[in-house]
């Protein structure tokens, strides 16, 4: 990403991760946890927060060290840093709640292999001062959490008839089991992408010829 070299922090630094460059919906990064752990809203939220923490911590550290890491070993360094923070998150979640840990399974440790985090380290944190990296990483992490929640909420409501474990429709609701199955993850994310694409196209159409709307 060819970012201009100014160090001013704008609203954009923060918000690009939320929407315009949303890691999931726009850049399609870090898809594995997006689909795997979003079969309930609470799992999605926990995963989002864990990822946010790793993104923030590794982004800060890499940004601080950016001038003392030789080019040739930078990827190895980034990976070790990321793996360190993921291990920390892994043990912390185990200490907070074993149930949650069992629900997320190996996917906490797989945060290491989330292309989004390494991608941000390489493209942003290694080129920008700490404060700016922190702001940007927060935006990206929140955008990621938001996307996870979008999926988790839809899948839990349709697939289990509940939200954050609270029953919504009563016993007469017949859950759409497919939604909590792996296939549901693909389908719901596909549906979200279709929706966004449709909104985008409608917007650009109205901008191009406003007459057609009236």
């Amino acid at each position: 990403m060819a970012k201009k070299q100014d160090n001013t922090i704008t609203w954009d630094t923060f918000s690009e991760g939320l929407w315009r460059e949303n890691p999931v919906f726009v850049m399609l990064l870090g898809m594995c946890p997006v689909l795997a752990v979003t079969n309930s809203a609470i799992n999605a939220l926990a995963m989002g927060i864990a990822t946010l923490f790793v993104l923030l911590a590794s982004g800060t550290l890499i940004s601080l060290l950016r001038n003392s890491i030789p080019k040739q070993v930078r990827i190895a360094t980034y990976i070790v840093i990321i793996a360190t923070f993921v291990t920390i998150v892994d043990y912390t979640i185990q200490a907070i709640s074993l149930d949650l840990y069992n629900a997320l399974g190996a996917f906490i440790q797989l945060i290491v292999a989330n292309c989004m985090i390494l991608g941000r380290a390489e493209a942003y944190s290694s080129r920008n001062p700490p404060l700016k990296s922190i702001v940007n990483a927060t935006g990206m992490g929140l955008g990621f959490t938001l996307a996870l929640l979008c999926l988790g909420v839809v899948r839990e409501i349709l697939g289990a008839g509940s939200l954050f474990g609270i029953d919504l429709f009563g016993p007469r609701f017949e859950p759409w089991v497919v939604m909590v199955l792996p296939a549901g993850g693909f389908l719901v994310l596909g549906a979200w992408l279709l929706l966004f694409e449709w909104l985008k196209q409608r917007k650009s159409e109205t901008e191009l010829n406003p007459a057609s709307e009236s």
């Binding site: 296939a183 549901g184 993850g185 693909f186 389908l187 994310l189 596909g190 549906a191 992408l193 279709l194 694409e197």
Partner: peptide, 8 residues
Amino acid sequence: AVSLMLGG
């Protein structure tokens, strides 16, 4: 989007 649907 369509790749994801296919994946599903």
